[in-house]
Nucleic acid binder design. Structure first.
Lengths: 177, 177
DNA sequence: CTCCTATTTCTGTCTATACTGAAATTACTG
DNA sequence: CAGTAATTTCAGTATAGACAGAAATAGGAG
């Protein structure tokens, strides 16, 4: 039941590998790839069979994907089982993932860097070098975070236009070196 | 020998955790953090002692960091041992890492998506839905890769100005929704 | 050429995480 | 309010990756 075409399998396996390289569990990434490709919502049993993983593993992974906000439960009339579907819009998908990674990883790093710089400043003149380094790092993260927040606020279509325009903006603004 | 200040330790430990969340070995990330903070090049023995890891582990991790292109060997007069130092400029650092991740992960994904879309097209009208999804994904990756390549070509200071300008560009270009 | 130091490679061990299957829970249906 | 289907939790197992220590290699210096 629900056998994969060679192309589907190829993509799902690759997506799983990509996941591991970016700190995402392989099965989680595979399930996401499957739901992304699949034309209609799937229930847990179906996912488990299609990917040959344990039913319980699917349960855990789905929760993870829901935690990231990229998979939602839907219900099918006359079927008591939960069905799951992935967010369809690729741009929206990556935006959600980036938001979440910023919230979970970048924001705490910013907080820590601020603490470190502050504590380092109290330590008198000792360790000026460390303070300089941490300040440079903090400055980088603050700039990038601020930039992302601004892009983030754009409606999707504006963001897409913005990206498609790419480096041409450079010339427009006379930023060339 | 070479004891860490509390601030240094805090940053190094955090950087290690960050590494794991982004698919980088904890020790590799810690060594990088150490070299980033340290005012002068360190030899392997010194690194091993400071972080309390095995000498061999340092050797492997340093090779990894060299593979990423963010750590270089330098030599100190009258000392036969290799000394290592991290790239200093934070902007340059992230640029190098992004370049490498693009080369290792994004470009192969692009290639695979192109293959999948092509193969899927041969399969006649069957599986139109999968083809649509893969095409949307490919389009996203191509757009982002193209965008990155353009930013990538800017000299660092232009890129920084560009990022610092951030969303204001939106208004300048009248992209507001 | 030999000794010595530095570095890398290799193999086995350990640990964190992923995963499974069973049991427990939840929530529907007749 | 049983009885059943679906889902989650849990506890044990398996596995991949990280790591240490030993052995091998490389590469001077005398």
């Amino acid at each position: 039941m629900a056998a994969l075409t060679p192309v589907q399998e190829k993509f799902i396996l690759h997506w799983g590998e990509m996941g591991t390289k970016w700190g995402v569990n392989r099965t989680v990434a595979q399930i996401h790839a499957l739901l992304f490709l699949w034309p209609k919502p799937m229930h847990a049993e179906e996912i488990a069979e299609t990917l040959s993983v344990a039913r319980s593993n699917v349960s855990t992974s789905i929760k993870e994907l829901q935690g990231w906000g990229i998979v939602k439960v839907v219900h099918v009339m006359g079927d008591r089982r939960d069905h799951f579907e992935s967010m369809k819009d690729v741009w929206e998908l990556f935006r959600v993932v980036l938001d979440e990674r910023k919230r979970r990883e970048i924001d705490p790093t910013l907080a820590l860097l601020r603490e470190c710089v502050a504590e380092s400043a109290q330590g008198k003149a000792e360790d000026t070098h460390t303070r300089e380094r941490l300040t440079a790092m903090l400055d980088f993260f603050e700039t990038m975070a601020g930039w992302y927040d601004q892009i983030r606020r754009m409606p999707t279509d504006a963001a897409i236009k913005f990206v498609r325009m790419g480096g041409r903006i450079q010339k427009l603004l006379g930023l060339a070196s």
